[in-house]
């Protein structure tokens, strides 16, 4: 492989990290919980939940030894106050609360030896094609695994709801969801009627990789009163030429935490996003507010 290929791979690695992986349905799968909302376990009624690989799972009791390979799911479980149910972490989970746990490596192609030794009764993994091998090995080895695909705003909410059902933390999940919904409604209200600003999201690289429709950041831009100047891309992240970028006349460049604004584009205002915004997880409400504030500072006095 030549240098370009490897460079591209590095960016993709990063892109995958942010966007999760695989196509997976945006419908998010369903939950059927007994109507009394008790979380199922006490009265013996199993909780039935569908994951983003369209597999049905039955939980007779909430799992007590969880390894989450998806950082946003880890954050969600922590937000539920279930930190003591987590028995492992990935290299991307930097929370001090988890630093004493063994790391299984990356969220994709995790170290299966360490994972097995942790004896989890549930592994939460990325849905999709990037790591099909891990899913198959886990099935072969008899480790239950739940696939999620946190790609967009709706996915994030559906995942929070389902994780709440599985872990018997419906109350915590519902209050988190209510908080997110009110934050999103607040953002929408503030930017309503304001002129749409033309925005591009740059992941970094040379030529720079930009986000197309279907990405979390794209949805946040739209919600925050912007338009993505690359809303016609067929793929999630694509490298584009500087010419093309200039030609699309963005009013604002949002730069990923790891990226940098191309010096030749210094005439276009740019702002760097904090890394926490880019993880589609329980921080959704704050992320939406922050992106909207960067696009329309006038709406957030």
């Amino acid at each position: 492989m030549d240098h370009r290929g490897i460079k591209a791979a590095k960016h993709c690695l990063f892109a995958t990290l942010i966007s999760a992986c695989g196509p997976g349905g945006p419908d998010g799968g369903g939950v059927s919980v007994p109507l009394d909302g008790s979380g199922g376990a006490p009265n013996g009624q199993p909780v039935v939940v569908t994951d983003d690989a369209q597999r049905r799972h039955e939980f007779v009791s909430p799992p007590g030894r969880i390894v989450s390979l998806v950082p946003s799911a880890t954050e969600t479980l922590l937000a539920f106050g279930l930190g003591d149910h987590l028995v492992g972490r990935t290299e991307y989970d930097r929370t001090p609360e988890l630093s004493s746990l063994s790391s299984v490596g990356g969220g994709l192609q995790p170290n299966l030896e360490i994972l097995l030794a942790l004896e989890p009764d549930l592994v939460i993994r990325f849905a999709g094609e990037s790591d099909r091998a891990t899913a198959e090995r886990l099935t072969d080895l008899g480790v239950p695994h739940f696939a999620i695909q946190p790609d967009g705003i709706a996915d994030v909410q559906s995942i929070i709801r389902r994780l709440g059902a599985i872990t018997g933390a419906e109350a915590a999940a519902n209050s988190l969801l209510a908080e997110i919904r009110s934050a999103l409604a607040d953002v929408q209200e503030r930017v309503e009627g304001l002129p749409l600003r033309r925005v591009a999201y740059l992941l970094g690289g040379e030529p720079p990789w930009v986000a197309g429709p279907g990405t979390y950041i794209h949805e946040l831009m739209i919600l925050g009163g912007g338009t993505n100047v690359f809303d016609d891309l067929g793929q999630l992240y694509v490298p584009v030429s500087l010419e093309e970028l200039i030609d699309r006349k963005p009013d604002l460049l949002l730069i990923a935490e790891s990226g940098s604004a191309p010096p030749k584009l210094s005439s276009i205002p740019s702002v760097r996003l904090p890394g926490s915004i880019e993880v589609p997880g329980p921080g959704l409400g704050d992320a939406a507010r922050e992106v909207a504030r960067l696009i329309h500072p006038e709406a957030f006095p």
Binding site: M1, G5, I6, A8, A9, H11, C12, L13, A15, T16, C21, G22, Q109, L112, G128, E129, S130, A133, W209, Q235, L236, Y237, V238
Partner: peptide, 18 residues
């Protein structure tokens, strides 16, 4: 797309993990 490129590069680097 980026996911295919990532999987392909990983495959081309060779691994016994599978």
């Amino acid at each position: 797309d980026a996911r295919t490129v990532r999987s392909a590069i990983l495959w081309m680097m060779g691994s016994l993990a599978g």
